[in-house]
Simulated scan of single mutants.
Amino acid sequence: MATNPSPNSKPSTYLQDMDEVRQVFERFDANKDGKISADELGGVLNALGSDTSAEEVARMMQEIDADKDGYINLQEFAAFCNKDSDDPHKSADKELREAFELYDQDQNGKISAAELHKILTRLGEHCSEQDCAGMIKTVDSDGDGYVSFEEFRKMMTNSNSNSGDAK
């Protein structure tokens, strides 16, 4: 039985609320059956450029699959996304760094429009490299045409902290 996080626990900066957790979960759930299989988890990780072995995927599944049914449901996924919330700054920074590194394919410390396009295309998004350049321009505070980790952090933190204000 899944438990809800306590009202005092803070979700990570990366996945601020349940709507965001659900959106990410639905990306992983390729066949839309309401659960993530090992194949689906491995597929998304590979699409993101990770060289995750089948053994690593199996270990991840064991860690996340609390009810041990062989699948990750939404509640298990949400609990995993929000674990380590005792130290939200450490956890959030680590998650942001990992997310940034998935996009920074050449590991040069910057996300280019080409890198962003490559990842979004692998995830099934239909956009052009010019669209990606436009996305980068909106967060590129130093005007160099790339997103640095600090710009990425600022974008993720600002979009999450403002998400409830617009309603």
Score class of each variant (00 low, 15 high):
G143E: 11
M135Y: 00
G49K: 00
I136L: 07
F80Y: 09
R153W: 11
F80Q: 08
L74E: 15
K137G: 05
Y103F: 15
D87P: 12
D165G: 08
G124E: 13
G145C: 03
G109Q: 05
I136E: 11
S161T: 06
A92P: 09
E129S: 01
E125P: 03
V57S: 03
S163Q: 08
A113N: 03
F152C: 04
E125I: 01
D69F: 03
L123Y: 07
Q107P: 03
L116H: 01
A166K: 14
K137S: 11
N158M: 09
V57C: 06
E129G: 04
E76S: 01
I72W: 00
G134V: 00
F80D: 07
G49T: 00
A114G: 09
F149H: 05
Q75I: 04
G70N: 10
A166V: 14
T157R: 00
D84N: 13
I72F: 02
V147W: 03
A113S: 11
S159Y: 04
S159N: 12
N82P: 00
K137C: 07
M135A: 04
T138L: 12
D106T: 06
M61P: 10
R59F: 10
A79W: 02
T52N: 05
C127N: 12
E151N: 01
D86T: 10
D65T: 02
T157K: 00
D93F: 06
A92S: 15
N158G: 02
I119T: 08
D165Q: 13
K137Q: 13
E150W: 07
E151D: 13
T138H: 10
D65E: 11
M61L: 14
A133S: 11
F152H: 06
L96S: 07
M135R: 01
S161H: 11
I64T: 14
A92C: 07
A66E: 15
E98Q: 13
M155D: 06
L120E: 14
T157Q: 05
G49N: 08
L120A: 08
Y146F: 15
N162K: 04
A166F: 13
C81D: 08
F77M: 04
D69T: 02
E151T: 02
E150I: 06
E95M: 15
G143P: 05
K68N: 15
I111H: 04
D67L: 01
A133I: 01
D86F: 10
N158P: 02
M156P: 02
D51A: 08
S85R: 09
M156F: 03
D65K: 00
D86Y: 10
E63F: 05
D144I: 00
S50R: 06
Q62D: 15
E129P: 12
I111N: 05
P88V: 14
D106V: 01
S159F: 06
A54V: 11
V57E: 09
E125Y: 14
K90F: 14
R59N: 15
F77D: 12
E125N: 07
D142N: 14
D87I: 11
Y103C: 05
G124L: 08
K68L: 11
N162V: 00
E63A: 10
A92L: 05
L74N: 03
S112P: 06
